[in-house]
Write a protein that binds this DNA or RNA. Sequence first.
DNA 1: ATACAAGTTTACAGCGCTGTATCTTGAGGC
DNA 2: GCCTCAAGATACAGCGCTGTAAACTTGTAT
Lengths: 352, 352
Amino acid sequence: MKRVRLVDVAEVAGVSTKTVSNVVHDYPHVAPELRRRVQAAIDKLGYRPNLTARRLVTGRTGMIALAIPEIDHPYFSELSRQIAEEAARRNYRVIIEQTLGKLDAEHAVLEDREAGLVDGIIFHPVSIGALSIAKLHHDTPLVLLGEGAMPATSDHVMIDNVAAAAEAVHFLLRQGRRRIAFLGVVEDDVTFSTDKRLLGYQQGLIEAGLDPDPGLVLSVRDFSSEASGEAVRAALDRGVSIDGIVCRDDKFAAGALRACAAAGISVPDGIAVLGWDDTAIGRYTTPSLTSVAPDKSALASTALELLTERIDGFRGVGRHRIVPHGLTIRGSTPSVSAALAVPQGEPAVPSA
Amino acid sequence: MKRVRLVDVAEVAGVSTKTVSNVVHDYPHVAPELRRRVQAAIDKLGYRPNLTARRLVTGRTGMIALAIPEIDHPYFSELSRQIAEEAARRNYRVIIEQTLGKLDAEHAVLEDREAGLVDGIIFHPVSIGALSIAKLHHDTPLVLLGEGAMPATSDHVMIDNVAAAAEAVHFLLRQGRRRIAFLGVVEDDVTFSTDKRLLGYQQGLIEAGLDPDPGLVLSVRDFSSEASGEAVRAALDRGVSIDGIVCRDDKFAAGALRACAAAGISVPDGIAVLGWDDTAIGRYTTPSLTSVAPDKSALASTALELLTERIDGFRGVGRHRIVPHGLTIRGSTPSVSAALAVPQGEPAVPSA
DNA sequence: ATACAAGTTTACAGCGCTGTATCTTGAGGC
DNA sequence: GCCTCAAGATACAGCGCTGTAAACTTGTAT
């Protein structure tokens, strides 16, 4: 069963292929009667345009690549969903490229391996540096996500990590916490995100007139939730006094929660724990997790806006956009009105 | 900066476009010296083949569509990852289509909207029925996933849900539990998965000589973790005696865990809770979740195997494949040593 | 009736690539 | 020296569609 082509429809309807094409595209200047006839032929034959052929001539593919480290990391899957939905709204579809944060995979993303496949790329780099991005990036429209390398030449969307971390610290300080730890420095692997968040953490303390205690910056073996738990336990075992923890992500926070439970320390009464990314993880932990909440929807729509502008011909220097963040408050931090039990629902305290 | 084409390379190298094409494709009969010259021209100009053009002539796109209800549901994001990796291994890339389980979106998946876009489709249906699938499906190679509708005409991959549910029940019975509830029937929305799992649950009880108590089949308002928690709480409030719960998925299990905690019932001592899908959720709950574990990797590779066979021309009736499942044991069920107290003869944990 | 504008429809080239058929060349056999 | 043959290289058509420009058809003003 051969696929139905434009010419087949044209023949049946007794018109030129271009007229059929015009009908398919709702071109206004087509006589109503002809339009009907053509439509009938289309329906009868079950014609579907061949997108590949259309692409070859228009040069547009209607697809964008989304390159992220891991599809199944909650933050990225939630972000992917926002991006896919926003893309669909703009009549693009998304092809997902998983880099696993590996350098060669990240290189491949930029090296036009996609030649003619996608109209643009949304890329959350992890390992690759700004220089490499600038060097390897050809001319496919590109928008960068995250706190990673940001060459001045590329568009870029992120939240204000430093401010968010400082706000998180202030939030805990306001509740009387004074021994606030930062959990997120992974040995041998200081990511851009951690850097920014650590900086904001220190800044928040200093703004409040406190002296950051280096002993409160906890170092973790790897990026697993288990390792973060061990780090907390080790600190506790060392006798470090802690009454609050700001974590680089929800996974680490989950580990911290476990470590506290194991040590018989109540959360949030003994130690308040604050996650980052506001992922689904925070809804399943006990207690549920207060977490810095990037506005994923704004992230997605801003990224697509910048990208589509590039696709539509915009040629300017890199634009950097900051999107809002908030704090989703759940059970791992004391409620503002101290004694009340904290609901575990969605609504966040708006910020930024 | 116009994109470099085959003719540009051909001109620089002083050969025909076909020779360049042959070099690109490692066609054997090219003189070494020419090959070198052409390669030099390719490198110099930074030529990348235009995949769209290649596709138009070859008819192959090298892409498969993965149509799932939700990208950011842990089960589907974990499965997506497996599928994306398996696809990459076979030189396919994946474009993800989110249906949200909506009927019209599921229809669109089949209606060749993708004409010429993908070589095949892997589809996890939720709402659409077997009849509609058979009717709407044209000739794009298709593999179905999940427990949903399975027309005899289409290939299909799943785990043995009935057996898995029965095994889950036996597992709890072996630990001395006798009042085992099933949590997963959502009012007005009996999905195929729930059906099969409920059947297996009942079967497991009957095999053990127990009489299924209808009062132990808990009905949930919607698919949220909150609703499942409420259902458990309501049952407890009604005074229903329960010492084990088999849940239709990990989300429901997480809700059950919360409800038990709220009611002051210890898990697993008072009630053992068993989830389904072995998603990341189970690693973050307190206690962590014992869960029926579909072999996602086998699911992915089998689906791709069937699909590529179709793509490569196989024309046969629908093939149905069962892939292995197991049981990931964590804290929400008593440890095996505790179970030793109770004699019972049934195959141990792992199963196929 | 004539000219002209606006509305409709069409012919045709060509997007960038690959498959097929064909041509060229040099080596080897007689 | 002539013929054959396989390897190496090429010409050319065409995948299915759309953009452009040109042709044709009305309707209206002159």
